[in-house]
Computed example of a mutant assay.
Amino acid sequence: MQPQTGGRPASTRRLILATRNAGKVTELRAILEAADLDVDLVGADAYPDVPDVKETGVTFAENALLKAHALARATGHPAVADDSGLCVDVLGGAPGIFSARWAGRHGDDQANLALLLAQLSDIADEHRTAHFACAAALALPDGTERVVEGRLEGTLRHTPAGTGGFGYDPVLQPLGDTRTCAELTPTEKNAISHRGHAFRALAPVVRELLG
């Protein structure tokens, strides 16, 4: 199952990110390069025979670890996975791990956003605090694991604004800004995003465990 390069096994310093999203791979690769880490980072699409893992955990960290361990076991290489979502204070941290399927169908951003805004329709501005949370896990084939987390604090708008990003980006306004995440440029968003914070916190862990 391990790809071959020039007739030789793939580098032992290969690191696999549990995603088929090329943008995520590019983002983590840039962070590792900025940390001067010589790692051959690839996405899960480099291993098409490895099935996706069901996210049955009850926390972001548990889901990230499930995916990272499954990929590490299947490929024999260290693997990174992340899980993230929106946590609304007045809803006790919900949607949380259910963010992508809050309205009942996985990945229906429009329905998820509409339901959330309806649930918060009578909530005053001062009580609309929320944050994006991300847990990033690194797992080795021998079972070693590490988890780091990142956050993006903000408040929720009453109506969506902006056309960038995805998910709940059009309603979360980062603290200290007057725009929603969907109104930020990709560069601006990556600099402050919950996943960006988590991935940057992961760089020293990669150095520690991969050498």
Results as ranks from 00 to 15, higher is better:
P3L: 01
P3H: 02
Q4I: 15
T5F: 14
G7N: 09
G7S: 09
R8M: 10
R8H: 12
R8P: 01
P9E: 04
P9F: 07
A10K: 11
T12F: 03
I16E: 06
L17E: 00
R20L: 00
N21C: 04
N21V: 02
A22R: 12
T26H: 09
E27T: 00
A30I: 00
I31Y: 13
A34F: 01
D40W: 05
D40K: 02
D40Y: 05
D40F: 07
V42E: 01
Y47W: 15
D49C: 08
P51A: 06
D52M: 13
V53A: 05
G57Q: 07
V58Q: 14
E62W: 14
L65C: 11
H69F: 06
H69K: 14
A70P: 05
A70R: 09
L71G: 08
A72P: 05
R73E: 14
T75I: 09
G76A: 12
P78W: 09
A79K: 07
D83N: 09
D83C: 09
G85P: 02
D89H: 14
D89T: 15
L91E: 03
G92E: 09
G93R: 10
G96T: 06
F98V: 02
A100I: 03
R101N: 02
W102V: 04
D109A: 11
L113F: 10
L116V: 08
L116E: 05
A118Q: 13
A118W: 03
A118T: 12
Q119P: 01
A124S: 12
E126G: 15
H127D: 15
H127I: 01
R128N: 03
A130K: 13
A130H: 12
C134K: 10
A135C: 11
L138A: 06
D142C: 13
D142N: 15
R146N: 01
R146E: 11
R146Q: 13
R146I: 06
R146A: 14
V148S: 05
V148D: 04
G150K: 12
G150S: 12
R151Y: 13
R151P: 00
E153V: 11
T155Q: 12
T155I: 12
H158A: 15
T159N: 07
T159H: 14
F166R: 05
D169K: 08
V171L: 06
Q173A: 12
D177S: 14
D177G: 03
T178G: 11
T180M: 05
T180Q: 03
A182V: 02
E183I: 07
L184A: 03
P186F: 07
H194N: 08
R195A: 00
R195P: 00
H197M: 15
A201G: 02
L202A: 01
A203H: 04
P204W: 05
L209D: 04
L210S: 12
